Amino acid sequence: MDLNVNNSLTLFIEYLQIEKNYSQYTIEHYHHDIREFFMFMSEQTIETLNEVKYFDVRIYLTRLYNEKFARRTVARKISCLRSFFKFLVREGLVAENPFALASIPKAEKKLPEFFYEEEMQALFNACETETLLGQRNKALLELLYATGMRVSECSQIRMKDLDMYLSTVLVHGKGNKQRYIPFGSFAHDALEHYIHNSRKSLMSKRDSPNEYLFLNFRGGQLTARGIRLILNKMIEQSALTGKIHPHMLRHTFATHLLGNGADMRTVQELLGHAFLSSTQIYTHVTNEYLRKTYMTHHPRA
């Protein structure tokens, strides 16, 4: 395959990192999906990106459907490749975008999963706070539930972003947008305990100081991947069944706020959503929750 193909990918990844300020997690998905398409090009003996035509895109789409990928996954892959070729057109590296006319399949309308309040309590009860890492994990869980921030945002919090006096945290979101989020007394107490006990001890394990709020067992920055592993471990130790994914805490945060009377604009600001339509899905969740509660508890339901 032509060397310029790989060079183009390198340029695109740099664009995502510098201009778009995408998280490493998102960039890894882009990189994987584009490399996958490069393999398809090799199989089809397509040497250069300029040779890719709409007919090739149709063949690629057919392959994805034959391999039984979910509609949401196919939509992500097509969107990724459309953005890639749009960038190449902008840079004058290809003449046209063959993915411009490719239709993205509509994703199934799936309500976001969330924890009920008693399930959240089971998670908190499963946190052991006798160890250094246990204290950190309790503070991590409390802050994620208290703020609804993304895991990628949580892993980037520095000590200077935290205002313990006002109980607020400065979050650096997508597109380098910043927002302040308040947190309650439970998160405040857990953070105080972690910072003055566990974090101080973890920090002593390295020679140079670390500015990040959450540290790993070596005293380095706790990554987004590390947070996901911690959350999965927590649910294994709790009475809950199934797998936890970090976004469930974000969904739970929004659902519980709306369910207890918060207005949608406020929840939108707290979540860092650019569009209100992204927040509106949680109204469907709360309506479903109300319906189930009614059907369970009303004597004549």
Rank of each mutant, 00 (worst) to 15 (best):
L11Y: 12
I13E: 07
E14Y: 02
Y15G: 01
L16Q: 08
H32D: 14
H32A: 14
F38Q: 14
M39C: 01
M41W: 07
S42F: 00
T45K: 15
L49E: 11
E51I: 07
Y54Q: 13
Y54D: 09
D56N: 15
V57K: 07
I59T: 14
T62R: 14
K77G: 04
S83D: 03
F87M: 08
F87S: 04
L93H: 07
A95E: 15
N97Y: 06
N97W: 09
K106Y: 03
A107Y: 00
K110R: 15
K110T: 15
P112H: 03
F115Q: 03
E118V: 04
Q121H: 08
Q121T: 13
Q121W: 02
Q121V: 04
C127V: 13
E128A: 03
G134F: 06
G134R: 09
R136L: 05
N137T: 04
A139W: 12
A139G: 10
L140V: 06
L141T: 08
Y145L: 13
M149H: 10
R150Q: 10
S152W: 02
E153W: 04
C154T: 14
I157M: 14
L162G: 05
D163Y: 05
L166G: 00
T168M: 14
V169K: 08
V169P: 09
L170R: 15
L170A: 07
K174Y: 02
G175S: 09
G175A: 07
I181M: 14
I181R: 01
P182T: 08
F183L: 12
G184C: 11
H188I: 00
D189W: 01
K200H: 08
L202S: 04
R206A: 13
S208M: 11
N210G: 00
L213H: 08
F214M: 04
L215S: 03
R218A: 05
G220P: 00
T223R: 04
L229Y: 13
I230K: 02
I230G: 02
M234E: 10
M234R: 13
Q237I: 00
S238D: 08
L240E: 12
G242M: 10
P246C: 11
L249G: 05
R250L: 06
T252V: 09
F253N: 06
F253K: 08
A254V: 12
L258H: 06
G259Y: 12
G261Y: 09
D263L: 08
T266Y: 10
L271E: 08
G272L: 02
H273I: 10
L276D: 04
S277C: 00
T279M: 06
I281W: 06
I281F: 07
Y282L: 07
Y282C: 06
T283G: 02
V285K: 07
V285M: 07
L290N: 12
T293C: 12
H297K: 06
H297P: 00
H298Y: 12
P299H: 12
A301P: 11
A301S: 15
A301V: 11
